[in-house]
Each structure stands twice: as C-alpha cells, then as structure tokens.
Amino acid sequence: MKRAMHLNLLGVYAIFIVALLYGPVLLLPMFSFNDSIYIAFPLKGFTTKWYQEMATNSALLAALMNSLKVGIGVAIVSTVLGLTAAKAVIRHRLPGKTQIVGMIMLPLLLPSLFLGIALLIILRKVFSVDLSLWTIGAGHVLICMPFSMLILIARLEGFDKSLEEASLDLGENAWGTFWHVTFPLALPGVISSLLLSFTTSLDEFVIAFFLGGNDTTLPLFIWSQLRFPAKLPGVLALGSCILVLSIVIVVLAEVVRRRGVQSSKPTVF
C-alpha cells in the first residue's frame, strides 16, 4: 500500500514536470494555425497558410537542414571527446588532473560573444579557414564538450575499475575492453551527452553568427527574421512540425525497441 502511494506521488510529479515542459511549447502549434502575424491573444481565425509559407520558404528549410547537420555532428564529436577525456580523468592518476578538468570547463565561463569573436580571429587570421558549417561545428564542440565531460565524469566516477582490469587480464585488448566494458557502462551517460550536445547546438546563435559564412543555421535565421515579424508565423509552423515529428519519431523508436526486446527474449532465456 505504502509503496503504491510513493510511486503515485513521484508519478504525479513527473507528469507535472512534463506538463510544465510541454505546456508553453504546445502553444506554438495553436498559434501556427492562427490567422495573424502576431503571437498574441485573442486568436483571429483558422488558417493553414503559414504551413504553405513554411513549405515554400527554401531559406528556412535550408537553415533547418544546416542546423540538423551541425547538431548531429557536434553531438557525436563532443560525446566521443568527452568520453575519452572523462575516462582518462577518472581511470588514470594524472598529474595536473584538476587543472585539466578546470580547463575543459572553461568554455562554460566565457561569454559566448567573446568566444565567437575570438574563434573567428583564430580561424580567419591564424588558420585562414573559410567560414562554413564546419567552423560553426568547431565552435559548438567547444561549448558542448564541458557538458559531455560533466555528465560522463558523473557516470564513470565510482565504477569498479576491476571490471576493466579483468577484461584486460582475460586477453581483451584496450579497444575491446573499451567497447565491451567501458562503453556499455557509460551508455546512459553517452545518450544523455548526445541529447544535451545536440540540443545545445540546435539552439546556439551567437557563436553561429560569428563563425557562419554564407550558411545560416536555424536560430540565426530566426533571429535575423525578427526584423520582419510578418515572417515569424512560418517559423512557428516549422517549430510545430519539429515538435510533432520528434515526438512521433521517439514514440516509434520506443515501440520498435520494445518489440525487439520482446521478440529477442525467448532466444536469450
């Protein structure tokens, strides 16, 4: 009895948090069908014209594709770098470890505007690199890596080191040990880190402004659209599509995963 109560209370809280996170966001689909360029009450009337506008706005869609490319790339690179670094810091007694960790956390402390300008100078004047999505990605890796590190250190810290040692003793090489022992242990952290880095990159615009040449990412596009409020509803429609599509994909993935688990069960046991 008591246990059920406990579960319910937490469950109610979880639902409250999800409602809090989704509540404001669910207004977006509502206003995306509103026949007014302004996101304000009262609602004016039903229209689907913003969706037509979105579908024909090639600059908007190009910006979205750019953002997805950068976001996925950044998530992978920053997680890989974060994982190796976290493992090094946790597993090996390193002289200067605190300083190294401190340094990796530094990008969190720097004003993004400063980072944007400083990186632009480094990339243009020191390396003479042309601005592109690659340079935006490099900037984003820099600010995502601390997040990845923090999460993965929290995950790896305190794990029994003997697991890895046993694997090495049993003749696995370093790569095999990493792949078969460390990585599965770190998996929840890896997923969290991927999600965080992707989300951060998807929303970042100050660094993207300075490091982007002729390629525009979605937040940059939206910010520059602020000069023209008439175009905002198209962005709203896009936001709604992203929201609905993400939810559909996530639920589908979950369904597929559970099917997979069920069908594989008999063979395992």
Binding site: I121, F210, G212, G213, N214, L220, F221
Partner: peptide, 20 residues
C-alpha cells in the same frame, strides 16, 4: 550573390574587423 546575414550594425562591424 551569396549573402551572410546580420541583425545589428555594430556586430556586423565587429565580424568584419575580426576577419570576415
């Protein structure tokens, strides 16, 4: 032509000074 967009004159100037 190719366009790069800005929304603040001063930031545009800083971007040019920094090497764009």
């Amino acid at each position: 032509p190719s366009y790069s967009f800005f929304s603040d004159e001063e930031e545009a100037l800083q971007k040019i000074l920094a090497g764009f």
